[in-house]
């Protein structure tokens, strides 16, 4: 497989040690290769957008990189070392459908902080701070599950950020949200990047990719069809799959698939 160790982009942090490195990652299920040998390197402080059709393996790749699923072969290294508890503590993930505990908005944040070992008054202080950053302070004492989809997703993102992660995985966080909620989420993502957090964002929204992304990884049939600095790659797509995607055509050719 091709390797994309560093992106040829003047804006990239050349020379900075990658924080996450995947090599030869494969994952099979039901007799077919869902992730078929992916090599990927994440430079710190950048937003990498992962795109591709349904079933291309985007969500699965995120779970493999985050360590929720173990690959059948290949490796995922966090700062050069296998994923362990410390690596997990330095990462966070927001799922497409936010998972809210059956508690208040504030209690959801306090739970995440408690798991990270934040105690006592500091826990409450950071929870309240995270809520006000996400503009959710007014809803602090409401049961989290009565919030609207957009509010729940903002809360999920705030909860993920409350633990001060170095790497944030976002799996289509705005997939079913209206423009106002999408804008609020995108602001949170920009804030995260501004504070030095590395972001991996799965999205189907080309506009969102352009608004937020530094780098692009385009998946097709479980492989990296194309990767590189986002704007340059979208401007001159090499693969037929990405070209069709950018031009808004339906790409149904599966010749790349094994």
């Amino acid at each position: 497989m091709r390797d994309f160790p560093a992106f040829d982009d003047p804006g990239s942090v050349q020379g900075a040690a990658p924080i996450l490195c995947a090599s030869g990652v494969r994952f099979h299920a039901g007799g077919s290769a869902l992730i078929d040998g992916i090599d990927l390197t994440l430079a710190p402080g950048r937003i990498t957008v992962v795109m591709g059709a349904n079933g291309a393996g985007k969500s699965l790749l995120l779970r493999l990189l985050h360590g929720l699923i173990l690959p059948d072969s290949g490796s995922v290294l966090w700062r050069g070392r296998p994923l362990d508890r410390a690596a997990r503590a330095a990462q966070a993930m927001v799922f497409q459908r936010p998972v809210m505990l059956r508690r208040s908005v504030l209690a959801n944040l306090r739970f995440a902080l408690a798991v990270q070992g934040v105690r006592g008054a500091e826990r409450t202080r950071r929870a309240v701070q995270a809520l006000s950053r996400a503009n959710l302070a007014d809803l602090a004492h409401r049961p989290a599950r009565v919030l609207s989809g957009g509010e729940q997703q903002r809360l999920a993102l705030a909860r993920a950020m409350a633990g001060a992660p170095e790497l944030l995985f976002l799996d289509e966080p705005t997939a079913s949200l209206d423009p106002a909620s999408t804008q609020a989420i995108e602001t949170q993502i920009r804030d995260a990047r501004a504070s030095g957090v590395t972001v991996v964002l799965v999205t189907h929204d080309l506009g969102q990719a352009r608004r937020l992304g530094d780098d692009l990884v385009f998946l097709h049939a479980g492989r990296v069809a194309e990767a590189g600095p986002l704007h340059a790659t979208l401007a001159r797509p090499h693969s037929a799959a990405l070209r069709a995607w950018v031009e808004g055509r339906l790409f149904l050719d599966t010749s790349c698939a094994t």
Partner: peptide
Amino acid sequence: EQFQSLGV
């Protein structure tokens, strides 16, 4: 998955 992600 949320618990795994949070490291509970």
